[in-house]
Simulated scan of single mutants.
Amino acid sequence: MRVMGKSRIVLIAALVALGAVPHATANAQPAGQVVAVESLPAAATAPDSARAERLIYRSTTANDEPTTTSAAVYFPAGEAPEGGWPVIAWAHGTVGLGDECAYSIAGPAAVDRDWAYLGTWLNQGYAIVAADYAGLGGPGEHPYLNGVAEAHNVVDAVRAATAQYPSLSNKWVAVGQSQGAGAAVTTARYATEFGGPTLDYRGGVATGIPAYIEDAIQLLGPALPPVPLSSHLTAYVLYILSGLRTTYPTLDIDSFLTDTGRTWLTRAQSTCIGPLGEDLATTKPTLASFFTRPLADIPHLHTLLTGYMGLPESGYNRPLFLAQGLEDTDVITPQTLRYAATLKANAQPLTFHTYPTDHNGTVNASLTDSIPFVRSLFA
Rank of each mutant, 00 (worst) to 15 (best):
G135F: 01
T333W: 01
V21Q: 07
Y117N: 05
G138N: 03
W90C: 01
S49Y: 00
G137F: 03
L55G: 12
A44D: 06
V148F: 12
T266M: 00
S39V: 00
L251E: 06
W115I: 03
A91P: 01
P143K: 11
A42S: 13
Y144M: 06
W264V: 08
W90Y: 09
Q177E: 14
P319Q: 10
A89S: 15
T362V: 15
S314K: 09
N153P: 07
A281E: 15
I273R: 00
T271Y: 03
D252K: 11
L304H: 02
L55V: 05
G135C: 04
R293L: 01
P285R: 08
F256R: 08
G119N: 06
E141G: 11
P47I: 05
A71Q: 10
D369G: 08
S70E: 13
S49E: 01
A31C: 10
E141I: 00
D252S: 12
P299W: 11
A379Y: 00
I12Y: 04
G78V: 06
A77K: 09
R8N: 12
L241N: 08
R202V: 04
L311W: 03
D369Q: 15
A102L: 09
W115G: 07
V10E: 15
G310W: 01
L322W: 09
A106Q: 08
L55Q: 11
T354N: 08
L229Q: 10
A42H: 02
N146S: 13
I371W: 02
T283E: 15
D369F: 02
D279G: 07
M4S: 14
P294H: 04
H152D: 05
A281K: 14
L295N: 13
K284Y: 01
T368W: 00
T246N: 12
E38P: 00
E278T: 15
A13Q: 15
T354V: 11
